[in-house]
Design a protein around this nucleic acid. Structure first.
Length: 170
DNA sequence: ACCCCGATCGTA
DNA sequence: ACGATCGGGGTT
């Protein structure tokens, strides 16, 4: 029924809108799927916690693509993190998918381990590959959404306190 | 060539 | 509270 894969126009909107709207959607990859329960937004070069704060590099170049691409990077030499790009080409912004409703994928590193997502998937187009996000008709109201500062970015000065983490209250 | 450190996680 | 583990990015 509601097999509704999110299309380009969903991702190319303002990042904070996309972040809130991703809650309750389903991340799907190779026969595994789960409801997104926690995300964080990283927006532009003024955001000192954003990987693109210092400009474009080989590692973060996908962040400069238009909305709807997978930005995957290795962190701490051990784990991978999955982001989805947002907004228009040339503006670096993305949303970190931190958790789905599954104890095996309740953190960004665990999530990638659970799905088998690695840097090999960096740059995938979420609108035309087997990695995608779909709307299964779950309705999320404003009262269901919690908001806080982002995790693990205390080094980022002023940006550390931006309330750009969104999660589904349990 | 070298050094520092990270959008994490599991164990102590 | 801390160690694992490694590549990116800046510096020499």
């Amino acid at each position: 029924m509601s097999q509704n894969i999110l299309k380009r126009s969903f991702y190319t909107r303002p990042t904070l809108e996309v972040a809130r709207d991703l809650l309750g959607k389903y991340l799907v990859f190779k026969s595994k799927a789960g409801k997104i329960t926690e995300v964080e937004a990283y927006i532009g070069q003024d955001d000192k916690a954003c990987h693109a704060a210092g400009g474009k590099t080989k590692r973060n170049e996908v962040m400069f693509m238009k909305g709807g691409y997978a930005y995957v990077y290795l962190i701490y030499g051990l784990y991978h993190c999955l982001n989805v790009t947002t907004e228009k080409a040339g503006f670096p912004s993305a949303i970190l998918i931190r958790a789905i409703d599954n104890p095996q994928a309740n953190g960004p590193g665990k999530l990638c381990r659970y799905f088998g997502i690695t840097r090999a998937h960096n740059g995938l187009d979420l609108t035309r590959s087997d990695l995608y996000i779909e709307d299964r008709g779950v309705i999320i109201s404003a009262n269901d959404i919690g908001q806080s500062k982002r995790i693990g970015v205390d080094y980022a000065g002023e940006s550390a306190n931006l309330p750009w983490r969104f999660y589904l209250k349990s």
